[in-house]
Nucleic acid binder design. Structure first.
Length: 597
DNA sequence: CCTCAGACTTGTAGTCATACGT
DNA sequence: ACGTATGACTACAAGTCTGAGG
């Protein structure tokens, strides 16, 4: 382990590692070719055997604090009778303010699971959720949260210190000579599953995860994490083909949850870099692929036509692939390959446009995708063909799924999958927009506005929406008030300047000259402030229903942004906050001002 | 082939902490 | 110094994609 882990030392050594690794790969590549005369794919990987690390040591996860029963007097009412609560009742009571506790599915699932938890005596007594009154508990929780807000500085400080201590102890691991931050070292506490959209499992009980449920992954020669006293791990394994430190199976979907490293870690950063490199390779052959799928629209084979139209949508509209999902297990959402007849409408003429397709479906996280776009005639005719003799609930692309599509893509370019198109189109859009919008005469705030607009174009393309913030209208109003005030200030300042000038004209004194200068500066300052506020207002208004974060974090090659900052003299802090700078440290190190995606 | 577990990325909402104006 | 609005950060759900195994 190196002695120092300060940010800059780490970054430099990482960069060095990148360089060394290239050499290493080239070397082993040559050796492999000599030995095997085999076709080896050149990969940006640290180890050629697919292993992800050599040494991994950590302290294991932090478990949810044990359940502490409420004071005896805090109970819930059943049909007039006062009863003691349990963990899940508590959770239910805490959610009372949310709309979903009124939903049938939520209540039904909660009721079913809750009854499994209670004693037979309680079971015979409590027979109807609607007769339960949790309001007393709910009140108690509200009081508690008030009390927490009112805590003294010392108490708050103490909690903060304790959190920091836990972070220092459990929040880091050592992977191959580097101390790395762990992403989520705390195990999720028990609670009620919510899920998004119309989830059939909402309200079910998420059980507590115990050490006996947890698999630990670390290297053999490391100091193994200790389970809490009196407990055992489910298993300790030493699998260096994976990157996770601990895992367990969650009880709602039966899926596996992992503890992995923070995005600032080498292992995540490298993967991220690789992702953008793949997207850049797509850039080189996207024209070929596009003309290929346009050819395929004419194919005699239905499956090829479907594949080609689907790919066109993925490319043009940045749709997700759309894997099949198990019915009834999750909310009914779709992506490109899983689109159904009911999700599109065709208009040979709409307003003044020809061949318009209207999309209306729920995508990931049950976010609605709604879009009307004119398509080429051939696509339109194909879609009409795909719709023939089908019911609304039938698959639009009945001869296609993601694995067929991805297999095809793999043949077109090594490492190409459906999601690469999203990355590619997002990044190339940002680069294009930045070129178009940036203007050297602009002030820094105006440049940042341009950046945000470019970012926004991408977010719109990727359909990254958000619910308008609850306080949106009010905060807009506040900002407008500020702008008005500033404007008044400005005219006042201008008047003063004018007066000072007149004064100076009359007296020609040194003192009056100074006053003019002072007043001129004041006007300038206020003008600047006003401009800043106006830019802020524009930015906020345009951003009302758009979430920039996801694209910034997952789709935009950070080197584009870094290069843009360098080119236009915008400090990187204006674009990326601290966490983002840590995540994109590799790009901040690598990209020069002439970087091209 | 097909299915499904597994691993890893992407996504929004909500909570928390802090900067800001009063 | 205080309270609130805002951005940072966390939580954890929900996707994508691969590859093992029948």
């Amino acid at each position: 382990m190196n002695g120092s882990f300060s940010c800059s030392t780490r970054r430099v050594s990482w960069h060095e590692q990148l360089l060394r690794r290239r050499y290493h790969v080239c070397f082993s590549l040559r050796r492999f070719i000599l030995l095997l005369c085999a076709e080896i794919r050149w990969e940006e990987e640290r180890y050629t055997d697919g292993s992800k690390w050599r040494f991994l040591e950590h302290k294991g996860p932090v478990f949810a604090p044990p359940y502490e029963p409420l004071p005896d007097k805090v109970r819930f009412c059943y049909d007039g009778e006062s009863l003691f609560a349990h963990v899940f009742v508590e959770k239910f009571a805490k959610m009372l303010d949310h709309e979903y506790t009124t939903k049938d599915v939520f209540r039904k699932n909660f009721w079913k699971d809750w009854r499994k938890e209670i004693t037979s005596e309680e079971k015979s007594k409590i027979t109807d959720l609607n007769k339960c009154n949790f309001s007393e508990m709910s009140e108690y929780f509200k009081l508690q949260s008030e009390a927490r807000k009112q805590m003294s500085k010392e108490e708050k400080q103490k909690i903060k210190e304790e959190n920091e201590r836990i972070l220092q102890e459990y929040g880091f691991c050592i992977m191959d000579n580097h101390k790395e931050r762990i992403g989520n070292f705390r195990i999720e506490p028990p609670g009620l599953f919510r899920g998004r959209g119309d989830h059939p499992k909402m309200g079910m009980l998420k059980r507590r995860i115990r050490p006996e449920d947890v698999i630990i992954n670390c290297s053999k020669d490391s100091k193994h994490p200790k389970p809490p006293p009196g407990t055992k791990w489910k298993e300790v394994r030493h699998d260096n083909k994976v990157t996770w430190l601990a895992s367990w199976t969650e009880n709602i979907q039966g899926s596996i949850k992992y503890i992995m490293l923070n995005p600032s870690s080498r292992i995540k950063g490298e993967k991220d870099w690789q992702k953008y490199e793949t997207a850049r390779r797509l850039k080189k052959c996207v024209d070929r692929i596009r003309s290929q799928y346009r050819e395929d629209w004419k194919s005699k084979e239905m499956r090829i036509r479907q594949r080609a139209v689907a790919l066109y949508f993925i490319d043009k509209l940045a749709l997700r692939a759309g894997n099949e999902k198990e019915e009834g297990e999750t909310a009914d959402t779709v992506g490109c390959c899983s689109l159904r007849v009911e999700h599109i409408k065709l208009y040979s003429k709409l307003d003044d446009q020809e061949y318009v397709v209207e999309f209306d479906f729920l995508g990931k996280d049950s976010i609605r995708y709604y879009n009307k776009i004119p398509v080429e005639k051939r696509v339109f005719k194909n879609l009409q063909l795909f719709l023939e003799n089908k019911q609304p609930e039938d698959d639009l692309f009945d001869r296609l799924n993601t694995s067929i599509l991805n297999k095809h893509l793999q043949e077109l370019m090594d490492g190409l999958t459906a999601k690469v198109f999203r990355t590619y189109n997002a990044s190339i859009t940002l680069q294009q927009q930045l070129k178009e919008l940036s203007c050297s005469d602009d002030s820094i705030p105006a440049k940042i506005l341009s950046y945000n607009r470019a970012n926004r174009a991408v977010a719109i393309l990727c359909n990254h929406q958000r619910a308008p913030p609850k306080t949106f209208e009010k905060s807009m109003q506040n900002l407008q008030t500020k702008i008005d005030e500033k404007q008044n200030q400005l005219s006042a300042a201008r008047k003063q300047l004018k007066a000072a000038k007149a004064d100076h004209k009359a007296s020609h004194g040194d003192k009056s000259k100074k006053t003019v200068e002072v007043k001129r500066k004041a006007v300038q300052r206020i003008e600047e402030q006003l401009m800043k506020l106006q830019v802020q207002a524009t930015d906020r208004e345009e951003n009302k229903q758009i979430a920039l974060g996801t694209s910034k974090l997952n789709y935009l090659d950070p080197r584009i942004s870094v290069a843009w900052c360098k080119k236009w003299g915008v400090p990187i802090e204006k674009i990326y906050n601290k966490t983002q700078r840590e995540k994109f440290a590799w790009a901040i190190d690598m990209a020069e001002k002439d970087y091209e995606f």
